[in-house]
Nucleic acid binder design. Sequence first.
RNA 1: CGGGAUGUGGCCCAGCUUGGUAGGGCACUGCGUUCGGGACGCAGGAGUCGCGCGUUCAAAUCGCGCCAUCCCGACCA
Length: 575
Amino acid sequence: MRYSEMFLPTIREIPSDAEVISHQLMIRAGMIRKLTSGIYSYLPLGYRVIQKLEQIIREEMNKAGAQEVHLPMVQPVELWQESGRWVHYGKELLRFHDRHDHEYCLGPTHEEVITSLVRNDIKTYRQLPRNLYQIQTKFRDEVRPRFGVMRCREFGMKDAYSFDVDEEAAEKSYEKMFEAYNNIFRRCGLKFRPVEADSGSIGGKYSHEFMVMADSGEDAMVFCEKCSYAANLEKAEVACPEKKIIFEDDWLPLEEINTPNARSIEEVSVFLKVSPQDIVKTLIFNADGKPYAVLIRGDHEVNEIKVKNYIGASDLELASDEMIQKVTGSPRGFAGPVNINIPVLVDYSVIDMVNFVTGANKEDYHFLNVNIGRDFKVEAFTDLRIVTAGDSCPRCAQSVKIARGIEVGHVFKLGTKYSKSMRAFYLDKDGQEKIMIMGCYGIGIGRTVAAGIEQNYDDQGIIWPMPLAPYHVIITPVNVNEKTVMDAAENLYDALMKTGIEAIFDDRDERAGVKFKDADLIGIPIRVTIGPKNLSQGNIELKIRKTGESILCKIEGVVETLQSMIASELKTDTP
RNA sequence: CGGGAUGUGGCCCAGCUUGGUAGGGCACUGCGUUCGGGACGCAGGAGUCGCGCGUUCAAAUCGCGCCAUCCCGACCA
């Protein structure tokens, strides 16, 4: 396309309301514009990148045997009441009325719609398995949209749903999608990692998130470099330590000590001149209205998801001051397990501790020399803390590392959550009615594009990997008023069009510097610079955006050179 | 929902403390010069200063209320 005819408004300055790199660059490169909080328009350049990604996704999904559908975004209240989510989904679900005063919502996800579709038209095991997907706009009324298209309210998503006869078949569907996702992100040229993730209230043994590695990512992941273990930080397990033998002879007598105004671990450790590792933190949680005490070593953090999952609570939060007062008889900051009348859950980190410090359930007092078995009863020892770098891998005992990432995909076993409540049944060989087993598989479209930028940029702008690049090549004649230069540029542009190489022809009457800056900003992988000096020798220059490398080459044969450069960057074969 | 910040031509910002005819840079239009890393000169167009109420002879500026946007937190099938 001729640059002079494009709608490609680039911006020199950083927009004041964009904080993260991908957001800044997408606006500056003329890819997106904000309409209102969390809602963005894609301009031609941005939309081309979206389409590149969608094409890769379609190819891999189709290859994996999935079929594309397109489901409605406006969905009636009845479906959501059937699944139970009209009540449970909360405020993220945008609800509204039509002219007949009937209630609807904008689809934040499509389990309900797909299940209602499939249950009506799939009746027998002969029609299973099926995997249906779509690329569609979702709306989730996020509390706090941020980071541009990374966490926004209206966004594109590829969502797929599998239907199987039993768990074993569902497992196969899951594995196919897992493989397809690996292929998709690999083909996009992204550095990513599938990690084990919490499967939340839906159940199922596990799910996997696909994380694009980026320091600016919202998620943290734990991984082991020795074995293949990788998990979302909130899911990552801590192995049960081997229990040391504790000699009761070592137990010192319990001692109550005055600790005025020392509430936090830090304050207590300074006051008592002990290290946080010698203190046991007691946190009171409110699990569906019931109080629980959670004990953990002072220098660790509690993983609330683990606590919630262990208890099996549907709602878990730190107890209010009133609840703390009621169960400990003291204000916040002095809770301890001794003489407390609620279940005490103990993290593995405390298992080997002796003569430790805890709160005394009395304002301004702590206990010294507390010991498990003598001073309080334990309901359970289990894994309740957040993994820290250097902890040992739960699979191979090597120490784990922590990195940040952006969640761009999630593969999930749904089991019968929706097929049961929404009655998606089929008849098996014996004529028995059975419940379909479902899986769901999502990829955030805009988020993947943003993640691609977070991973590929420099101080001049975006550096597109070839598979996502909106155009492969940009032709830059340095002076449009020199006829020889422009003729050569026009001829090259024609030749590229004929071979199907996607090119921008920067025919604008701008100074070379402006064109170079724009080309760098929008991140086109290869720039062909045509200038009078080189041209008089029959040469033109290829500038590689990624490496900054300049290649001088003869104008004859340059089309073939470009073709092979592009093809090698687009290679889809898997290692 | 709690905490913080910001709202002034399309974009980035100054002006507000101490009230007195709205300013710069970028972008845009025209003319001329320039032409391989965001050129220069001259001339121009473009703003209900987020909205409302109040104080005042007079409000971008002071007061009150509201709204919007961004950041931190809480939340996130």
